[in-house]
Protein backbone atom coordinates (compact mmCIF):
# COMPACT_ATOMS: atom_id res chain seq x y z
CA UNK A 1 0.00 0.00 0.00
CA UNK A 2 2.93 2.33 0.61
CA UNK A 3 3.36 2.45 -3.11
CA UNK A 4 0.30 4.71 -3.13
CA UNK A 5 2.29 7.37 -1.25
CA UNK A 6 3.69 8.57 -4.54
CA UNK A 7 0.20 9.86 -5.31
CA UNK A 8 -0.08 11.87 -2.06
CA UNK A 9 0.29 15.18 -3.88
CA UNK A 10 -2.08 14.49 -6.75
CA UNK A 11 -5.02 12.76 -5.06
CA UNK A 12 -7.46 15.04 -3.24
CA UNK A 13 -8.28 13.97 0.34
CA UNK A 14 -5.45 11.46 0.29
CA UNK A 15 -6.26 9.87 3.67
CA UNK A 16 -9.79 8.98 2.52
CA UNK A 17 -8.28 7.55 -0.68
CA UNK A 18 -6.01 5.33 1.43
CA UNK A 19 -8.77 4.27 3.76
CA UNK A 20 -11.22 3.14 1.07
CA UNK A 21 -8.71 0.76 -0.53
CA UNK A 22 -9.60 -1.83 2.14
CA UNK A 23 -13.34 -1.60 1.54
CA UNK A 24 -14.68 -4.05 -1.04
CA UNK A 25 -16.59 -2.69 -4.02
CA UNK A 26 -20.35 -2.98 -4.18
CA UNK A 27 -21.73 -5.28 -6.90
CA UNK A 28 -22.83 -3.50 -10.02
CA UNK A 29 -24.34 -4.43 -13.36
CA UNK A 30 -25.37 -2.87 -16.63
CA UNK A 31 -28.80 -3.40 -18.15
CA UNK A 32 -28.42 -4.92 -21.62
CA UNK A 33 -30.91 -3.08 -23.79
CA UNK A 34 -30.14 -5.41 -26.71
CA UNK A 35 -32.26 -8.01 -24.91
CA UNK A 36 -34.61 -6.25 -22.53
CA UNK A 37 -36.10 -2.84 -21.83
CA UNK A 38 -34.93 -1.09 -18.68
CA UNK A 39 -38.35 -0.98 -17.04
CA UNK A 40 -39.01 -4.66 -17.72
CA UNK A 41 -35.69 -5.62 -16.15
CA UNK A 42 -36.26 -3.48 -13.06
CA UNK A 43 -39.69 -5.08 -12.69
CA UNK A 44 -38.15 -8.56 -12.84
CA UNK A 45 -35.58 -7.74 -10.17
CA UNK A 46 -38.26 -6.30 -7.93
CA UNK A 47 -40.35 -9.43 -8.49
CA UNK A 48 -37.45 -11.56 -7.29
CA UNK A 49 -36.85 -9.40 -4.26
CA UNK A 50 -33.40 -8.34 -5.47
CA UNK A 51 -32.46 -5.04 -3.86
CA UNK A 52 -30.87 -2.50 -6.16
CA UNK A 53 -30.46 1.19 -6.87
CA UNK A 54 -29.77 2.81 -10.20
CA UNK A 55 -26.68 4.98 -10.69
CA UNK A 56 -27.25 8.71 -10.39
CA UNK A 57 -25.20 9.27 -13.55
CA UNK A 58 -26.24 6.39 -15.82
CA UNK A 59 -29.80 5.04 -16.04
CA UNK A 60 -28.61 1.62 -17.25
CA UNK A 61 -26.22 1.10 -14.32
CA UNK A 62 -27.37 -0.75 -11.19
CA UNK A 63 -25.85 -1.23 -7.77
CA UNK A 64 -27.02 -4.68 -6.75
CA UNK A 65 -27.47 -6.07 -3.28
CA UNK A 66 -27.33 -9.74 -4.24
CA UNK A 67 -25.03 -12.44 -2.88
CA UNK A 68 -23.94 -13.82 -6.24
CA UNK A 69 -25.28 -11.53 -8.95
CA UNK A 70 -23.56 -13.69 -11.58
CA UNK A 71 -25.98 -16.50 -10.73
CA UNK A 72 -29.11 -14.45 -11.29
CA UNK A 73 -31.27 -15.78 -14.11
CA UNK A 74 -31.19 -12.28 -15.58
CA UNK A 75 -27.42 -12.59 -15.94
CA UNK A 76 -27.53 -16.10 -17.42
CA UNK A 77 -30.06 -14.92 -20.01
CA UNK A 78 -27.99 -11.85 -20.84
CA UNK A 79 -30.43 -9.23 -19.55
CA UNK A 80 -27.70 -7.79 -17.34
CA UNK A 81 -23.92 -7.83 -17.40
CA UNK A 82 -21.87 -7.69 -14.20
CA UNK A 83 -19.54 -4.73 -14.69
CA UNK A 84 -17.70 -2.37 -12.38
CA UNK A 85 -19.45 0.98 -12.12
CA UNK A 86 -16.71 3.27 -13.39
CA UNK A 87 -15.79 0.82 -16.16
CA UNK A 88 -19.03 1.92 -17.85
CA UNK A 89 -17.54 5.39 -18.35
CA UNK A 90 -15.18 4.88 -21.35
CA UNK A 91 -17.92 3.71 -23.79
CA UNK A 92 -20.08 6.67 -22.76
CA UNK A 93 -17.18 9.02 -23.45
CA UNK A 94 -16.53 7.26 -26.77
CA UNK A 95 -20.20 7.93 -27.62
CA UNK A 96 -20.58 5.52 -30.56
CA UNK A 97 -23.62 5.92 -32.84
CA UNK A 98 -25.70 3.26 -34.64
CA UNK A 99 -24.26 2.50 -38.06
CA UNK A 100 -20.68 3.58 -37.31
CA UNK A 101 -17.54 1.47 -37.57
CA UNK A 102 -15.86 1.23 -34.19
CA UNK A 103 -12.71 -0.52 -32.99
CA UNK A 104 -12.18 -1.81 -29.46
CA UNK A 105 -8.46 -2.40 -29.59
CA UNK A 106 -8.01 -4.33 -26.29
CA UNK A 107 -11.41 -5.93 -25.98
CA UNK A 108 -11.49 -8.95 -23.64
CA UNK A 109 -13.53 -9.78 -21.59
CA UNK A 110 -15.89 -7.59 -23.57
CA UNK A 111 -17.68 -5.47 -20.96
CA UNK A 112 -16.98 -2.31 -22.92
CA UNK A 113 -17.32 -4.04 -26.31
CA UNK A 114 -20.84 -5.17 -25.46
CA UNK A 115 -21.73 -1.77 -24.03
CA UNK A 116 -20.58 -0.18 -27.31
CA UNK A 117 -22.62 -2.77 -29.24
CA UNK A 118 -25.75 -1.90 -27.27
CA UNK A 119 -25.17 1.86 -27.67
CA UNK A 120 -25.06 1.18 -31.43
CA UNK A 121 -28.33 -0.77 -31.16
CA UNK A 122 -26.75 -3.79 -32.84
CA UNK A 123 -26.19 -1.77 -36.03
CA UNK A 124 -22.97 -0.81 -37.78
CA UNK A 125 -19.83 -2.74 -36.89
CA UNK A 126 -17.73 -3.19 -33.78
CA UNK A 127 -14.36 -4.83 -34.29
CA UNK A 128 -13.32 -6.37 -30.98
CA UNK A 129 -9.59 -7.00 -31.09
CA UNK A 130 -7.87 -9.21 -28.55
CA UNK A 131 -4.39 -10.58 -29.20
CA UNK A 132 -4.35 -13.11 -26.38
CA UNK A 133 -5.70 -16.52 -27.38
CA UNK A 134 -6.83 -17.52 -23.90
CA UNK A 135 -8.77 -14.27 -23.48
CA UNK A 136 -10.86 -14.90 -26.60
CA UNK A 137 -13.27 -17.35 -24.98
CA UNK A 138 -14.67 -14.95 -22.35
CA UNK A 139 -14.94 -12.18 -24.95
CA UNK A 140 -16.84 -14.41 -27.33
CA UNK A 141 -19.03 -15.86 -24.60
CA UNK A 142 -20.05 -12.40 -23.34
CA UNK A 143 -20.87 -11.16 -26.84
CA UNK A 144 -23.05 -14.21 -27.46
CA UNK A 145 -24.79 -14.17 -24.08
CA UNK A 146 -25.61 -10.49 -24.47
CA UNK A 147 -26.97 -10.97 -28.01
CA UNK A 148 -24.44 -8.79 -29.84
CA UNK A 149 -24.93 -9.16 -33.59
CA UNK A 150 -22.70 -6.32 -34.74
CA UNK A 151 -19.40 -7.54 -33.27
CA UNK A 152 -16.59 -9.32 -35.11
CA UNK A 153 -13.50 -10.50 -33.23
CA UNK A 154 -9.93 -10.21 -34.49
CA UNK A 155 -6.60 -11.18 -32.96
CA UNK A 156 -3.98 -8.67 -34.05
CA UNK A 157 -1.25 -7.07 -32.02
CA UNK A 158 -2.99 -3.74 -31.46
CA UNK A 159 0.19 -1.81 -32.28
CA UNK A 160 0.08 -3.26 -35.79
CA UNK A 161 -3.64 -3.45 -36.39
CA UNK A 162 -4.10 -3.07 -40.19
CA UNK A 163 -4.84 0.38 -41.62
CA UNK A 164 -8.61 0.58 -41.87
CA UNK A 165 -10.49 3.81 -41.16
CA UNK A 166 -12.66 3.84 -38.03
CA UNK A 167 -15.14 6.42 -36.78
CA UNK A 168 -14.10 5.76 -33.18
CA UNK A 169 -11.45 3.70 -31.42
CA UNK A 170 -11.37 2.63 -27.78
CA UNK A 171 -7.97 1.85 -26.25
CA UNK A 172 -8.73 0.35 -22.86
CA UNK A 173 -5.08 -0.41 -22.41
CA UNK A 174 -3.37 -3.18 -20.44
CA UNK A 175 -2.23 -1.46 -17.24
CA UNK A 176 -1.00 -2.00 -13.70
CA UNK A 177 -4.65 -2.01 -12.53
CA UNK A 178 -4.07 -0.12 -9.29
CA UNK A 179 -7.67 1.07 -9.43
CA UNK A 180 -8.84 -2.52 -8.99
CA UNK A 181 -7.40 -2.94 -5.49
CA UNK A 182 -10.90 -2.89 -3.98
CA UNK A 183 -11.94 -5.85 -6.13
CA UNK A 184 -9.22 -8.06 -4.75
CA UNK A 185 -6.33 -6.83 -2.64
CA UNK A 186 -2.85 -7.59 -3.90
CA UNK A 187 -2.73 -5.52 -7.07
CA UNK A 188 -0.83 -2.75 -5.35
CA UNK A 189 1.73 -5.18 -3.96
CA UNK A 190 2.79 -5.93 -7.53
CA UNK A 191 2.96 -2.31 -8.64
CA UNK A 192 6.30 -0.71 -9.36
CA UNK A 193 7.60 2.20 -11.38
CA UNK A 194 9.49 -0.22 -13.58
CA UNK A 195 6.30 -2.12 -14.36
CA UNK A 196 4.52 1.11 -15.25
CA UNK A 197 7.39 2.17 -17.50
CA UNK A 198 7.35 -1.20 -19.27
CA UNK A 199 3.61 -0.91 -19.82
CA UNK A 200 4.01 2.66 -21.03
CA UNK A 201 5.96 1.50 -24.08
CA UNK A 202 3.09 -0.79 -25.06
CA UNK A 203 0.44 1.81 -24.23
CA UNK A 204 2.09 4.48 -26.38
CA UNK A 205 2.33 2.00 -29.25
CA UNK A 206 -1.36 1.15 -28.94
CA UNK A 207 -2.53 4.76 -28.69
CA UNK A 208 -0.36 5.87 -31.61
CA UNK A 209 -1.81 3.21 -33.86
CA UNK A 210 -5.35 3.97 -32.65
CA UNK A 211 -4.91 7.57 -33.73
CA UNK A 212 -3.59 6.46 -37.12
CA UNK A 213 -6.67 4.24 -37.59
CA UNK A 214 -9.15 7.01 -36.77
CA UNK A 215 -10.84 9.01 -39.53
CA UNK A 216 -10.38 12.79 -39.47
CA UNK A 217 -13.01 14.16 -37.12
CA UNK A 218 -13.19 10.80 -35.34
CA UNK A 219 -12.43 10.11 -31.69
CA UNK A 220 -10.06 7.93 -29.69
CA UNK A 221 -10.76 7.19 -26.06
CA UNK A 222 -7.78 6.07 -24.00
CA UNK A 223 -8.54 4.51 -20.63
CA UNK A 224 -6.80 2.57 -17.88
CA UNK A 225 -7.79 1.43 -14.42
CA UNK A 226 -4.63 2.75 -12.82
CA UNK A 227 -3.44 5.94 -11.11
CA UNK A 228 0.14 5.94 -12.39
CA UNK A 229 0.71 9.09 -14.46
CA UNK A 230 3.38 7.13 -16.36
CA UNK A 231 0.55 5.02 -17.82
CA UNK A 232 -1.93 7.86 -18.20
CA UNK A 233 -1.07 11.52 -18.81
CA UNK A 234 2.48 10.70 -19.91
CA UNK A 235 1.16 8.27 -22.53
CA UNK A 236 -1.31 10.81 -23.91
CA UNK A 237 1.35 13.53 -23.85
CA UNK A 238 3.86 11.36 -25.74
CA UNK A 239 1.33 10.72 -28.50
CA UNK A 240 0.10 14.32 -28.72
CA UNK A 241 3.69 15.58 -28.93
CA UNK A 242 4.19 13.65 -32.14
CA UNK A 243 1.24 15.10 -33.99
CA UNK A 244 -0.49 18.40 -34.55
CA UNK A 245 -3.56 16.59 -35.85
CA UNK A 246 -5.16 15.84 -32.52
CA UNK A 247 -6.58 17.62 -29.51
CA UNK A 248 -8.10 16.59 -26.19
CA UNK A 249 -11.79 17.03 -25.52
CA UNK A 250 -12.93 17.78 -22.00
CA UNK A 251 -14.63 14.88 -20.19
CA UNK A 252 -17.53 15.57 -17.90
CA UNK A 253 -20.33 13.20 -17.00
CA UNK A 254 -23.19 14.81 -15.09
CA UNK A 255 -23.68 13.10 -11.73
CA UNK A 256 -20.20 11.53 -11.61
CA UNK A 257 -17.35 13.55 -10.10
CA UNK A 258 -14.08 13.52 -11.98
CA UNK A 259 -10.75 15.14 -11.12
CA UNK A 260 -8.81 16.81 -13.95
CA UNK A 261 -5.81 15.10 -15.48
CA UNK A 262 -2.54 16.27 -13.91
CA UNK A 263 -0.24 18.78 -15.60
CA UNK A 264 2.85 18.23 -13.49
CA UNK A 265 4.55 15.06 -12.36
CA UNK A 266 7.84 14.53 -10.52
CA UNK A 267 8.83 18.13 -11.24
CA UNK A 268 8.12 17.80 -14.96
CA UNK A 269 5.59 20.13 -16.48
CA UNK A 270 3.08 18.50 -18.82
CA UNK A 271 0.78 19.90 -21.49
CA UNK A 272 -1.90 22.06 -19.90
CA UNK A 273 -4.60 20.50 -22.09
CA UNK A 274 -4.18 17.26 -20.12
CA UNK A 275 -6.53 18.86 -17.60
CA UNK A 276 -9.30 17.85 -20.00
CA UNK A 277 -8.71 14.18 -19.19
CA UNK A 278 -10.57 12.68 -16.24
CA UNK A 279 -9.33 10.84 -13.17
CA UNK A 280 -11.94 8.88 -11.22
CA UNK A 281 -10.91 8.11 -7.67
CA UNK A 282 -12.52 5.40 -5.52
CA UNK A 283 -13.21 7.59 -2.47
CA UNK A 284 -14.98 10.27 -4.45
CA UNK A 285 -17.74 8.25 -6.14
CA UNK A 286 -17.35 5.01 -4.12
CA UNK A 287 -16.20 3.11 -7.21
CA UNK A 288 -12.96 1.64 -8.57
CA UNK A 289 -10.29 3.94 -10.00
CA UNK A 290 -10.04 4.95 -13.66
CA UNK A 291 -8.35 7.34 -16.05
CA UNK A 292 -10.06 8.42 -19.27
CA UNK A 293 -8.92 10.77 -22.04
CA UNK A 294 -10.75 11.64 -25.24
CA UNK A 295 -8.69 12.62 -28.27
CA UNK A 296 -10.27 14.15 -31.34
CA UNK A 297 -8.45 13.76 -34.63
CA UNK A 298 -8.58 16.97 -36.63
Amino acid sequence: MDFLDRYRDIVPDYEAFRAIQCQPLHSSARINTLKIKRDQLLEKLRGQGVLFETFAWYPLGLRLDAGSPGKLLENLLGYIHIQEEVSMVPPLVLDPRPGETVLDLCASPGSKTTQISQMMENRGLVIANEPSLNRLAPLRSNCERLGCLNVAITRYDGRNFPRIPFDRVLVDAPCSSEGRERRGPGVLARSSCKRSMDLQVLQIGLLKNALRLTKPGGAVVYSTCTYAPEENELVVQAVLEETDEARLERISIPGLKECPGITEWNGRELKSELQSAARYYPHINDTGGFFVAKIIKN
Binding site: R123, G124, R140, C148, L149, V151, Y156
Partner: peptide
Protein backbone atom coordinates in the same frame (compact mmCIF):
# COMPACT_ATOMS: atom_id res chain seq x y z
CA UNK B 1 -22.60 -17.21 -38.30
CA UNK B 2 -24.84 -14.13 -38.49
CA UNK B 3 -23.83 -10.48 -38.31
CA UNK B 4 -25.75 -7.24 -38.74
CA UNK B 5 -25.62 -6.03 -42.31
CA UNK B 6 -22.57 -3.75 -42.45
CA UNK B 7 -19.52 -3.47 -44.64
CA UNK B 8 -16.87 -5.88 -43.33
CA UNK B 9 -13.32 -4.68 -43.88
CA UNK B 10 -10.77 -7.20 -45.12
CA UNK B 11 -9.32 -8.61 -41.93
CA UNK B 12 -8.48 -11.98 -40.50
CA UNK B 13 -11.49 -12.72 -38.29
CA UNK B 14 -11.79 -15.07 -35.32
CA UNK B 15 -15.57 -14.66 -35.21
CA UNK B 16 -18.08 -12.80 -37.36
CA UNK B 17 -21.13 -11.89 -35.32
CA UNK B 18 -22.87 -14.75 -33.55
CA UNK B 19 -22.60 -18.48 -34.17
Amino acid sequence: WAISDACLPRLSYETIGMR
